[in-house]
């Protein structure tokens, strides 16, 4: 079985971004970029399925400008077998990403597609569900455990009330939650080896997909700042202030 993993290049999770002065977007110049953390978890899960003998090949795909090849190379160093970049200038909307991934699914016929549950820049939480719909596959979103049993997939999902377990007929789509696994680091020899692994490129036109946007971002503004608070000297002072000053107790 082939496993397809979709990864996104995003601002590193430790960076606190700022909004540009002209309120057009957030400032991304000279900012550290990385694989979206949920996508790292997706790569790790695919590699583990390969190590356990469930997967024969792991293909990673990223959609974006050539800079995303850096993240694809990292994925290859982590253990993916092949990489595919679909060239796009800006980051297309989740619907367009899902359509592109659907076209790749048609070409590659994976038994399982793993995505992150959410990109930490756009915070959309859409693409996996959209791909599942377009590819007519069942979806195991927000997964904290995945087990393959014959031709079905047992997925434990993190839901608002706790945990839910579902069984999906493969091929299926899984989106990762934080506790699915702990991603490994790439070793130096593997980073060297990854340079020789295949990285193909395609364009949305090659795949016959229209990626024109359906939405316009009119403005990006900073959130309201919280006024600086005070330090209290003791627990009793704290309780007094909460009761009498803030009126919340």
């Amino acid at each position: 079985m082939k496993v397809l993993v979709a990864i996104k290049r995003v601002v590193d999770a430790n960076v606190k971004v700022r909004v540009k002065a002209d309120n057009s977007a957030v400032e991304l110049a000279n900012i550290k970029m990385a694989i979206n953390p949920f996508c790292e978890i997706a790569i790790e899960e695919a590699i583990r399925l390969k190590e356990k003998g469930h997967a024969s090949e792991v293909l990673v795909v990223s959609i974006g400008p050539d800079t995303c090849q850096e993240q694809l190379r990292t994925a290859l160093a982590l253990g993916a077998d092949r990489a595919l970049q679909i060239k796009a200038e800006d980051s297309p909307e989740p619907l367009a990403i899902a359509k592109l991934l659907k076209a790749v699914v048609d070409q590659e016929q994976p038994g399982l597609v793993i995505l992150g549950k959410q990109s930490i820049d756009g915070d959309n939480n859409q693409t996996g569900q959209m791909l599942a719909a377009l590819a007519n596959m069942p979806q195991g979103t927000f997964a904290s455990d995945v087990e393959i049993e014959g031709d079905s997939l047992q997925v434990t999902r993190e839901i608002d009330g706790g945990l839910q377990k579902v069984s999906l007929k493969m091929p299926a789509v899984v989106t990762t939650d934080l506790r699915l696994n702990e991603p490994r680091y790439a070793s130096l020899p593997n980073i060297m080896k990854a340079k020789r692994k295949p990285l193909e490129t395609q364009t949305p036109e090659d795949l016959g997909i229209d990626i024109s946007p359906r939405q316009t971002v009119l403005e990006v503004t900073p959130p309201p700042e919280r006024a600086a608070g005070v330090k209290v000297g003791s627990v009793s002072e704290l309780v007094e202030k909460l009761k009498n000053e803030a009126g919340v107790l």
Partner: peptide, 23 residues
């Protein structure tokens, strides 16, 4: 934008060929 809503809405949006505005 609960785990239920997030699970369902994008699936519907894609089936209707429309984008979604999240959260």
């Amino acid at each position: 934008a609960t785990t239920n809503g997030k699970n369902l809405a994008p699936r519907v949006a894609a089936l209707m060929d429309v984008a979604q505005v999240s959260d």
